[in-house]
């Protein structure tokens, strides 16, 4: 059964900097787990996450299978203002992709 969940971005201006929180909806199977029937679950994990602010690439994250289920990241970007666009894209090892955009809130 597919888990119906969405990637989420929260971006706010905090003390002149942009504070960003990402929560991606992904099972992050390492390929070494067993399911109920003692069968290996196929590997399926995000390998590459990219984050843009207004068309500038600011952060590239390469993940291995040791990243937790539903990966979470929180960090700050220097400067920025309300109304900036924060965009992310991810690709997993099977080639599945996701993208998401958010506008910076106050």
């Amino acid at each position: 059964m597919m888990i119906k969940a969405e990637d989420r971005i929260r971006a706010t201006v905090r003390a002149d900097n942009t504070h960003i929180r990402l929560l991606l909806a992904h099972p992050m199977h390492s390929g070494r787990q067993l399911n109920k029937d003692n069968m290996l679950v196929n590997a399926e994990f995000i390998q590459d996450i990219r984050c843009w602010r207004n068309d500038n690439e600011v952060l590239v994250i390469k993940c291995g299978s040791g990243t937790s289920q539903n990966p979470y990241f929180s960090f700050e970007l220097a400067g920025g203002q309300v109304g900036d666009t924060i965009a992310i894209r991810w690709v997993d090892n099977t080639g599945a992709k996701g993208d998401m955009e958010a506008i910076v809130d106050s």
Binding site: R53, N56, S68, P71, Y72, F73, S74, F75, E76
Partner: peptide, 9 residues
Amino acid sequence: DVLLPLKTR
């Protein structure tokens, strides 16, 4: 542009 602290799981 990226500033710490950075949190993840």
